[in-house]
């Protein structure tokens, strides 16, 4: 075959099959992006902006009362000091939940990486993550079966010691924390696992060959290397926890008053939407501050 013969190939046009011209790329790019971002604007961004505006109103614009712009909703923390206490409760619940999740989750991730491999590991990972993607409400509800008086926990106890009293602690803050830990532990395990699984075995072998014992390996090697996973897991636990309301409601009963339940009440019981909006926005400010603080780690954590 020579080239002059090759040009006899039935190509369309002198230089190839089709001289089709595409639209300018920005046209199709915009067309591809428009529906998604239009939708998000209507469903998320405009609502957040509207809520921000609402938080400056003097009352819910439903009745006949005249509406004026005011900062009073943001003064609520000073006018109604009990809100400060509730805020602190929320932060404490968030703190303990995150801490317990971090410890349990990190250890579980270490165990996954160091004690399992292959199909077993894959299956364990799926089993751990499975509850995370099921209905949170149902999982919280299921804890009431365990923690209530004469619940599953008590039944277990009475099998060992039939005369013992009740150790059920439903409707306490401990119950709230247990339920929340149960909800977010799988996520913490996942983020720590993703950070740990990239660690080369040789690093640990090198440390061991240098005389490091297991606790040195755990604290001096695995913990620092898992830090990005731990931090992103902690942020992504803490943030939803301080915004939670059904867990405190169901597991905390009367003691389960948190920022989340107070905000819920403003919208479903008290119908003080401006106060609810200002509280929501205060919460959002806290959330955004946390994200801003850890944005570097989060970006690396999710890119890992």
């Amino acid at each position: 075959m020579r080239n002059d013969q090759l040009t006899l190939a039935p190509a369309r046009g002198p230089s190839g099959p089709r001289n089709g011209r595409a639209l300018p790329p920005w046209v199709s790019t915009t067309a591809l992006l428009m529906p998604t971002y239009g939708w998000l604007t209507i469903a998320v961004f405009l609502p957040l902006l509207t809520m921000f505006a609402f938080s400056f109103l003097s009352a819910t614009p439903m009745g006949k009362a005249p509406i004026v712009f005011t900062l009073k909703q943001y003064r609520a923390f000073f006018d109604q000091p009990y809100l400060v206490g509730i805020g602190i409760t929320s932060l404490l619940i968030g703190f303990w939940t995150t801490l317990i999740c971090a410890i349990l989750g990190f250890l579980a991730a270490v165990a996954l990486v160091r004690s399992t491999f292959g199909k077993t590991r894959e299956m364990l990972l799926i089993l751990i993550l499975l509850p995370f993607w099921t209905n949170g409400l149902v999982r919280v509800f299921s804890w009431t079966m365990v923690l209530r008086e004469n619940g599953f926990l008590d039944s277990l106890l009475h099998m060992v010691a039939p005369d013992a009293g009740s150790i059920g602690f439903l409707y306490t803050r401990y119950a709230i924390v247990v339920g929340l830990v149960h909800g977010y532990l799988p996520y913490m395990i996942l983020t720590c696992y993703i950070a740990l699984v990239t660690i080369d075995d040789a690093i640990i072998e090198a440390a061991a060959s240098l005389g490091a014992r297991w606790w040195t390996i755990l604290f001096k090697i695995l913990l620092p290397l898992a830090a990005p996973g731990l931090i992103s897991g902690a942020v992504l636990t803490f943030v939803p926890v301080i915004g939670s309301f059904m867990e405190p409601r169901i597991l905390g009963g009367r003691v389960g008053v948190t920022m989340g339940t107070v905000i819920e009440d403003q919208f479903t019981q008290a119908f003080n939407w401006p106060l609810g909006a200002s509280l929501s926005f205060t919460l959002l400010a806290v959330v955004l501050a946390i994200f801003a603080t850890f944005s570097g780690v989060l970006r690396r954590g999710t890119a890992a």
């Binding site: 405009l46 939407w273 609810g276 929501s280 919460l283």
Partner: peptide, 14 residues
């Protein structure tokens, strides 16, 4: 990433 409580109440208002 934003707690659904915030997104949900914002949607309700809007």
């Amino acid at each position: 990433a934003i707690p659904w409580l915030i997104t949900g109440t914002a949607m309700l208002i809007f």
